[in-house]
């Protein structure tokens, strides 16, 4: 298990001009390690749809990579998105599944215990899939593994789906989420879109 804030710090240190789309607890902790105009923290995608939004964004912006930080509870709400990622996922999309086995935002209720998220991703066809057949599925079991693999997922064609088992011992900042339209406007502005 990786301490989540350490993983987010490593990601933020490796990130250059990628768009980072995040939802749920990542929206609370990512701002502790990053302040970038291409950060898109958003709680209101609709349940489980952060990576779907990220897929659309990556298709629209092929000149740069899109990284999606999402949780395992959200993925369970939209498992079909794995199949869509395997079929339509572009080279420039990276999905990092922060696997904490709990619905953390709603009080830490446990997820089903037997599900294998990397297995689901492989069975969906992501490994060797995506629009150009360059997709991959990996698991980062330690911070060292993450650090070793980050250059690959940020520098080679994907889509890359990474499962990162995480824990968290840091206090979470309070949820403060309003102005969803303003977040959209800011991201489009940062991308140079009117």
């Amino acid at each position: 298990m990786i301490e989540r804030l350490d993983l987010l710090s490593a990601l933020a240190a490796a990130r250059t001009d990628e768009i980072v789309v995040m939802t749920m607890t990542s929206t609370l902790q990512w701002p502790l390690v990053s302040d970038h105009e291409l950060d898109f923290d958003f709680l209101a995608f609709g349940m489980g749809h952060a990576s779907d939004f990220g897929l659309g964004l990556a298709v629209a912006r092929p000149e740069r990579r899109t990284i999606v930080l999402k949780g395992d509870g959200g993925l369970l709400m939209s498992l079909g998105s794995l199949v869509t990622l395997a079929e339509h996922g572009p080279d420039n999309l990276v999905v990092v599944l922060l696997e904490n086995r709990a619905y953390e935002m709603t009080g830490g209720q446990s997820l089903p215990t037997r599900v294998d998220f990397a297995g689901l991703a492989r069975a969906s066809g992501i490994d060797g899939g995506g629009v150009n057949g360059s997709g991959s599925v990996e698991t980062w079991n330690s911070l060292d593994e993450a650090a070793d693999d980050l250059p690959r997922v940020l520098g080679t064609p994907g889509p890359h789906f990474v499962v990162a088992p995480v824990t968290n011992s840091s206090p979470l900042p309070p949820v403060n989420h309003t102005d969803h339209a303003g977040r959209v406007t800011r991201l489009r502005g940062a991308l140079g879109i009117d």
């Binding site: 995608f45 609709g46 489980g48 749809h49 952060a50 779907d52 939004f53 990220g54 897929l55 659309g56 964004l57 990556a58 298709v59 629209a60 912006r61 939209s78 079909g80 998105s81 199949v83 869509t84 339509h88 959209v184 991201l187 489009r188 991308l191 879109i193």
Partner: peptide
């Protein structure tokens, strides 16, 4: 996509991306 909610979110990402 596999379900319509996915499709809505994908379309939203496409539009935000221009």
């Amino acid at each position: 996509p596999t379900r319509e909610g996915e499709g809505i979110a994908i379309a939203a990402g496409l539009w935000v991306g221009g």
